[in-house]
Write a protein that binds this DNA or RNA. Sequence first.
DNA 1: ATAACACATGAACAATCGTTCACATGTTCA
DNA 2: TGAACATGTGAACGATTGTTCATGTGTTAT
Lengths: 124, 124
Amino acid sequence: MIGETPRCEYLHAHDELVERVRRAQPDEDLLYDLAELYKVFGDSTRIRILYALFESEVCVCDLAQLLGMTQSAVSHQLRVLKNAKLVAYRREGKTVFYSLADGHVRTILGQGMEHLCEEGEERI
Amino acid sequence: MIGETPRCEYLHAHDELVERVRRAQPDEDLLYDLAELYKVFGDSTRIRILYALFESEVCVCDLAQLLGMTQSAVSHQLRVLKNAKLVAYRREGKTVFYSLADGHVRTILGQGMEHLCEEGEERI
DNA sequence: ATAACACATGAACAATCGTTCACATGTTCA
DNA sequence: TGAACATGTGAACGATTGTTCATGTGTTAT
């Protein structure tokens, strides 16, 4: 935080705008939680897990094999996904099966893909 | 990477599944880029900037005032957003105005918000 | 009860990230 | 040209993150 924030010369014109924009901002805590949610998507290992779960529910061991990673590493990442309520799990004997918990995952990843593939064609 | 990946006992049943899931996985590089994209959303400062740009194009100085942050910090974050092609900019004299570059931003943030607010009601 | 297995978790380390500070770039106006 | 202003950028520091290693928990079968 800064005590004295420098301001540009159009000050009076922009003051109104800044206030309007400020009022439109969602609650601080909500924005923080939102950032936390996207952090979860911000790792290729976790994205690979999510794409795997697009196809079917999968157990931890199979995920480890699929990703070529330690079971421990996968388990740690699954916990992150679980905390964000992006995956659900079901126990069957010794095995735990994970699945997608939420339809938003597909939309979010789909929109991300679109953005990547269109790269600067679209203007809003 | 691991040489000897441990595997669960249902091996033969799951082998087929693992192969099917593997084939469905998007290209490794694409998944990496996708993760990079979500990392950009994974910071509350950048999200606040994006929500500000929902309302109007805004200059760097006003963003700094709105966020209560250094102009430098804002500028650094704007570069991240610019590199991800999430914002566009327009120069007018000394002032630079930033705006949203892409409609996907609204969808992605909207879906994230929905996910946060529904928290575990929906099952896919 | 004991062994074997699937999975979870805590500590620790390297790597990455966000902010700050100092300074550079580019534009306007006298 | 030179001063003033808005913005951009490189280096550096503390904080966060992902993986590994060792170990803990919970289940099954003997």
